[in-house]
Deep mutational scan, measured.
Amino acid sequence: MPEGSASLQLAVGDRVVYPNQGVCRVSAIDVKEVAGQKLTFVTMRREEDGAVVMVPEGKVLAIGVRKVASAE
């Protein structure tokens, strides 16, 4: 991610809310080559049905992904 860009610090195992998809758990953060460029992807699995969603790390905030609020 370019320096100075806002990002959401995620780790494998974090629970997040993905708008219009529901609650997901981060299952992987991997670098993949797409069209000759190396990009970091956040892979999330929906808790409702296990569907897998992959989002480029740089788009996580723009999409509206946020961490699940704690009970505290």
Rank of each mutant, 00 (worst) to 15 (best):
M54Q: 09
V26R: 00
R45P: 00
V42Y: 14
T43G: 01
D14L: 04
N20V: 05
S70A: 12
A28R: 09
A28K: 08
A51R: 12
G13D: 02
G22N: 03
V52G: 03
E33R: 06
K67S: 05
Q21N: 12
V23R: 03
V17Y: 15
S7I: 13
C24D: 00
L39V: 15
K59R: 08
A28D: 06
V17F: 15
A69K: 07
Q9R: 12
P2M: 13
L10I: 08
V55A: 07
S7C: 04
G36W: 02
I63P: 05
V60R: 02
S7G: 12
V60M: 15
M44W: 01
Q37V: 12
L8H: 08
R66Q: 15
V26F: 00
E72W: 08
V16N: 00
A69E: 14
A11P: 01
V23N: 05
V17N: 07
K59W: 15
E33F: 11
V12F: 01
V53T: 07
R25C: 00
V23M: 10
A69C: 15
G64D: 05
V65M: 08
G50N: 08
L61M: 09
Q9C: 03
K67H: 10
A11E: 12
V31H: 08
K59M: 15
I29T: 01
T43C: 01
A62V: 09
L61N: 12
V65F: 07
K38E: 06
V16Y: 05
E57L: 15
K67T: 06
K38R: 12
V12M: 02
A69I: 14
M54T: 12
L10H: 01
V12S: 01
V12Y: 02
G36M: 02
A69G: 13
R25Y: 10
A11D: 05
A6Y: 11
V68N: 04
P56N: 06
A11R: 12
G4M: 10
A62E: 15
V23G: 02
G58R: 12
S27K: 06
A28Q: 08
D49R: 01
I29Q: 01
A62T: 08
G36S: 03
Q9P: 09
P56M: 05
V52A: 06
S7W: 08
S70M: 11
P2T: 12
R66M: 14
E47Y: 04
P19S: 07
K38Y: 12
K38A: 07
V31A: 05
G36F: 03
G50F: 04
Y18P: 01
V68K: 05
K67N: 06
G36H: 04
R25A: 05
V34S: 06
Q9L: 09
P56C: 05
I63S: 13
Y18S: 03
C24I: 01
E3R: 02
R15M: 13
P56V: 05
G36L: 02
F41K: 01
V42N: 00
I63L: 15
R25V: 14
R66K: 15
A11L: 09
F41I: 13
V42D: 00
Q37T: 10
V52W: 08
C24Q: 00
M1I: 13
G13S: 01
E47A: 03
V16P: 00
E57G: 09
A6T: 12
R25M: 12
E57R: 05
A35T: 05
S7M: 11
P56H: 06
E72V: 09
V34P: 01
I29W: 02
G22D: 04
V55W: 05
V68T: 07
G13L: 04
P2F: 09
V16W: 03
V34T: 06
A35R: 10
E57Q: 08
Q37W: 06
V31L: 07
Q37P: 01
K32M: 14
V60P: 02
E57H: 08
D30G: 14
M1Q: 12
G22C: 03
K38H: 09
A28Y: 06
E57W: 14
L61H: 12
M44R: 00
R45L: 14
L61I: 11
V60N: 02
R45M: 14
R25L: 13
M1D: 11
V60T: 04
V12T: 03
L39Q: 10
A71E: 13
P19M: 06
K59L: 15
S7D: 12
A71T: 12
A28V: 05
E3N: 12
G50Y: 03
R15C: 00
T40H: 05
P56W: 10
A62S: 10
V26Y: 01
Q9S: 09
M1F: 11
K32P: 01
A35C: 05
V53C: 03
V42H: 00
E57I: 14
I29Y: 02
L10C: 00
V23A: 04
V65G: 05
E47S: 02
A6G: 14
M1C: 03
K32H: 13
V34C: 02
V52P: 04
Q21R: 12
V17Q: 07
K32Q: 10
R46W: 03
A35N: 14
S27G: 03
R25D: 02
D30H: 15
E72A: 11
C24P: 00
M44P: 00
Y18M: 13
R66D: 12
L10N: 01
L39H: 15
T40N: 06
E48K: 13
S5I: 13
V12W: 06
K32R: 13
I63K: 07
R46A: 05
L61E: 09
D49G: 04
A62H: 07
A51W: 15
V68I: 14
V17W: 15
L8G: 08
V23D: 02
E47L: 08
T40I: 10
V17P: 01
Q21T: 07
V16R: 00
V55M: 10
R66F: 15
G64H: 06
F41E: 01
G4K: 09
A71M: 10
V17E: 10
A69T: 14
D30V: 13
D14Y: 01
V12R: 02
M54L: 08
V55D: 03
D30R: 09
A11G: 06
V31P: 01
V68F: 07
P19H: 06
V34A: 04
V55S: 03
Y18T: 04
S5G: 12
G13F: 02
V53R: 03
Q9V: 11
A71L: 10
P2N: 12
G13P: 00
V26T: 01
P19Q: 06
E48F: 13
D14E: 03
T40W: 09
E48N: 10
E57A: 11
V23E: 05
L39G: 05
L39A: 06
A51I: 09
V26G: 01
E47W: 03
L39N: 04
Q37S: 08
P2R: 07
V60Q: 02
D30F: 14
V68W: 06
L61W: 14
D30S: 13
M1A: 13
N20M: 09
R66G: 08
E72S: 11
S27V: 14
S70C: 15
V55Y: 06
R45K: 13
G22M: 05
M44F: 15
V23L: 13
V65I: 15
P2C: 04
G64Q: 05
R66P: 07
G50W: 05
G64V: 07
G64N: 05
P2E: 12
R46Y: 03
V23T: 08
V12A: 03
A28W: 05
V55F: 07
A62W: 07
A51H: 10
V26L: 02
G58H: 15
S5N: 13
T40V: 13
G13M: 01
P56K: 04
V52Q: 07
V16C: 00
E48I: 13
K32D: 03
A6Q: 14
A6S: 13
C24V: 04
V53L: 15
G13Q: 01
M54C: 03
N20K: 08
A62Q: 09
V42K: 00
